[in-house]
Design a binder for these strands. Structure first.
Length: 320
DNA sequence: CGGCTTTGACCCGCGC
DNA sequence: GCGCGGGTCAAAGCCG
């Protein structure tokens, strides 16, 4: 909100546990901003925006190439921890005051993750629930109580997790307006955090995009929004016509599910700080993929150590 | 009345 | 096997 805020994009690997992530940054780091990967999860590969934005296929191939591994998610992207793999791109930017209607004072960060070889418990449940419910009915006498969520999964079948994108937004409102319509379908208390995590699903039919919204317990002014999946439609806001600019300028690099309205506000002065080692696998990929005006404002991260720099920035932003 | 939120129950994966 | 934490479901309630 204070004018002159800088907007920055950061790439970093983040663990699924964002809340923990933020908690540790000042708790275990004493506020130094060092990011400590919880669980000692090995650094995951960073992927470019384009890779991510072009969907899993692109993304996996690019990654495979970048890391010289099989394109098979299960075996290639071996950054696994508990059967989980993920890569992230974190973008952090402060929205200039007044640009964002709903979140006037926001600093937005985004990151993406994907557990390629993993399954999405949610989807599993949902998808199987319908079909299994029928055949299971019989053997479900005892499962009466479990009338709800119950879904056996076909053996050997792995759930696929959608790519994820997480935003760290400095905002007073939890649910940020991003141009899409969401329906809340759950809320859970977050461990080690007084703030609950809310689960939203895109209300558009056949669109399976979901998002989680939680507030950093270390810095209540920061709202962490994690998008999962890609919208199969355009943003209602875009359709409404007030985002046509976005449609042409960002649609080429942003995934359907990307909160364009949010991004739009960041675009004017994206500024990515990259570190290198992580990108060494393919240092050019990032830039190559950013064949849009955007890249002109990005700074390539050099290594996953960027994890360590993200936080400081946040701190600076939040505590001038 | 339709759409959305709330909320308790339930399932799943994982670590011990 | 058990407990924990994350994620989802769906009934009930709320609201415009």
């Amino acid at each position: 909100m204070s004018g002159g805020e800088k907007r920055e994009f950061y790439g970093y690997h983040f663990n699924d546990e964002l809340s923990s992530f933020f908690g540790q940054r000042s708790e275990s780091m004493g506020g130094t901003g060092m990011l400590d990967l919880q669980n000692g999860e090995p650094p995951a590969a960073l992927m470019t925006f384009n890779e991510f934005f072009h969907g899993p296929a692109y993304y996996n191939n690019a990654l495979a190439r970048a890391f010289d591994v099989s394109s098979s998610p299960e075996e290639g992207l071996g950054v696994s921890e508990g059967g989980k793999t993920m890569r992230d791109v974190e973008v952090e930017s402060n929205i200039g005051g007044g640009v964002t209607p709903v979140t006037p004072n926001s600093s937005v960060s985004l990151s993406s993750t994907e557990a390629a070889g993993e399954e999405d418990s949610g989807r599993c449940k949902k998808d199987l629930q319908g079909e299994e419910k029928v055949e299971e009915k019989g053997a479900e006498n005892d499962a009466e109580k479990s009338k709800k969520v119950n879904k056996p999964r076909k053996k050997g079948e792995k759930r696929q997790r959608e790519p994820r994108f997480a935003f760290m937004t400095k905002s007073e409102v939890d649910h940020l307006e991003d141009g899409y319509r969401w329906r809340k379908y759950g809320q859970k208390a977050v461990k080690n955090s007084p703030y609950p995590r809310s689960y939203y699903r895109c209300t558009t039919q056949k669109c399976t995009v979901k998002k989680r919204v939680e507030r950093s317990y270390q810095d209540p002014t920061i709202v962490i929004t994690t998008y999962e999946g890609q919208h199969t439609h355009q943003s209602p806001a875009t359709l409404r016509g007030n985002s046509h600019i976005l449609a042409s300028s960002s649609s080429s690099i942003m995934p359907p599910g990307f909160p364009q309205q949010l991004l739009m506000h960041q675009m004017p002065s994206l500024n990515i700080n990259h570190h290198h080692q992580q990108m060494d696998a393919n240092p050019n990929m990032f830039l190559q993929s950013l064949q849009t005006p955007l890249h002109q404002q990005f700074q390539i991260p050099d290594n996953y150590g960027l994890l360590q720099d993200i936080i400081p920035t946040l701190i600076h932003n939040n505590h001038p």
